[in-house]
Amino acid sequence: MVNTKIFIKNLNLWFGKKQVLVDVNMNIAKKTVTAIMGPSGCGKSTFLRCLNRMNDLTDGVKITGEITIDNKKIYENGTDVPTLRRKVGMVFQRPNPFPKSIYDNIAYGLRINKVSRNKIPEIVEKSLEAAALWTEVKDRLHESAMELSGGQQQRLCIARAIAIEPEVILMDEPCSSLDPAGMFKIEDLIEKLKEEYTIIVVTHNMQQAARISNFTAFLYLGRVMEFGDTNQIFTKPKEKLTENYISGKFG
């Protein structure tokens, strides 16, 4: 692909002796949405956390293979991990706002990344707008983020991630703790965000994958069983296993 953003080659990962990812190969194109599907425990979160080196925080991880983002190998010696994480933002499975005000939740990343003080209020507003949360919170910016509903908290986490202008956004089952209304808001948001960002989203929900993604990867026991155009995967999967999974025979 010409416009490859992320290039993953022979990625293997072990937690201690247990191998969790096996020979993962994938090409992820710029400004597209890629859905990662697969039964629980197959390594979806672990895979996602390789892309912003979040697995570095876990003891006893061993990783081999190559991940390249914008032609830079991210596991090479001398990679500045905070800079990488700034470029590759993440939204977690459970909303995890800081126990701070709504405003400070977003300002946090900006301050860390040395954005000049007088620009912060404007960026906070812009990010909340982009995450479709501004109208709901504009009168209570200085109240605690913990008071928000789960769906609002998750949108706040998205706002927080986009405030520092990443290029890639990783989302790990961002809707799994939300009600349908909250879920549809996030899906709309993803639809909008893909104009600017490269998005990789783990999901359990096949309809969701079909609705929002351009490409889909099906992971099984740490291996990519099938990776391709979402339409093709859902209409004529090449692998029997993918077909069984999609038709709900297991999962």
Partner: peptide
């Protein structure tokens, strides 16, 4: 909760920034 530490690291914070500001 460790989820809050992770939130901080995921925004590009270093260990010290995470300790002091989170």
């Amino acid at each position: 909760p460790s989820s809050i530490r992770e939130a901080s690291y995921a925004l590009g914070a270093t260990k010290w920034e995470t300790i002091i500001q989170t």
